[in-house]
């Protein structure tokens, strides 16, 4: 089995080999081997030109990567925490997302910005943001949030080969989690961005999630089956934009119930968009209102036992499903 972090490492290593224009830049990605060891060994193998340690200067080096991508370099930029995107926001929105549009399609930015975007590690509000909804709100950007090692590998390779800016949100809790590990074949493969996957088939309710919430939903589905006799289906969005609405709707049409599991804050979170789609496209197929399990609506709390309650967990998902009646 390959761990999530090792799957990412393999994808990066292979794409460095496949394309001379790929360069990895970020804080501690080279000599330190990556703060979370995602880039472990890559500097040693590929050297100073291809794997570059950046100073703590996100607006500067992310903006630099965007500029370089306009000339055809394919930078894969690591944010040690995706929360640090907020100091590079102008570059990531006004420049990366808008330059193609404002140039009437003359310029494109084949850049990947990657890093962990999650709560649950007791690092307080500043380091626990889940900005997939913020970035997916911006046309011109693609947002990928993989939940397993296999998806992380296949989607990272597609992200690097994509000619639009892709913001790739990982999860510190998944990097070494055996539950997120996958069997990877020896031969290379890619997974398309914009394709959801049914991670567990069921008939009674659709649990729709992305990122680590998929694992929470899978665990909840197991408990619902064993303890309540409810057969839940789990849909993994895998990417937020582009969004695979077909897979979502097929599932809801089949189960007639939907509970959305989303680590975002509820207001304008990813699940708010999914709920709007379901009510518009599958209204007649619904036997109950679409319900959501999101983070409790406050900045991320530090206190370890309470943070477990703030973000979606198995207990809250089971409880919400049982509210459907």
């Amino acid at each position: 089995m390959t761990l999530y972090r090792h799957a990412l490492n393999r994808a990066l290593d292979e794409e460095l080999a496949n394309d001379d224009n790929v360069v990895i830049i970020g804080e501690e990605v080279a000599e330190y081997d990556g703060a979370y060891k995602v880039t472990e060994g890559l500097w040693k193998k590929w050297g100073d030109k291809r794997v570059v340690d950046a100073p703590i200067s996100e607006a500067g080096f992310i903006g630099m990567g965007i500029g370089a991508s306009m000339l055809g370099v394919r930078p894969v930029m690591e944010l040690m925490f995706f929360s640090f995107a907020y100091v590079a926001f102008d570059q990531m929105i006004n420049n990366a997302a808008c330059v193609r549009y404002m140039s009437g399609g003359l310029i494109n930015c084949p850049i990947v910005v990657r890093g962990p975007a999650n709560g649950g590690t007791n690092v307080g509000a500043t380091h626990s943001h889940t900005p997939e909804n913020l970035f997916a709100n911006m046309p011109g950007l693609k947002v990928v949030v993989p939940s397993t090692a296999r998806d992380a590998y296949g989607l990272m390779k597609s992200a690097i080969r994509d000619n639009d800016p892709v913001y790739f949100m990982e999860n510190t809790l998944l990097y070494g989690d055996p539950a997120a590990a996958s069997e990877l074949p020896e031969e290379e493969f890619t997974l398309p961005i914009g394709s959801a996957e049914v991670k567990r088939s069921g008939t009674d309710v659709s649990l729709i999630a992305h990122g680590r919430s998929v694992l929470v939903a899978l665990e909840a589905a197991k408990q619902l089956k064993e303890e309540k006799g409810v057969d839940a289906e789990v849909v993994d969005l895998r990417s937020i934009r582009p969004l695979d609405e077909e897979t979502i709707l097929n599932s809801v049409v089949k189960t007639n119930r939907a509970v959305l599991v989303d680590e975002n804050k509820p207001f304008c979170g990813v699940s708010a968009q999914i709920a709007a789609t379901i009510q518009q496209e599958a209204f007649d197929d619904l036997d109950a209102p679409v319900l959501r399990v999101t983070s409790i609506d406050a900045p991320a709390i530090y206190s370890p036992p309470l943070e477990k309650e703030q973000i979606p967990n198995v207990g809250r998902v089971v409880e919400k499903v049982m509210q459907l009646g």
């Binding site: 903006g63 630099m64 500029g67 306009m70 000339l71 420049n95």
Partner: peptide, 12 residues
Amino acid sequence: GQTPLGIGLAYG
């Protein structure tokens, strides 16, 4: 906002 892009061109 163009100044990081400017060094990006130089980097490229």
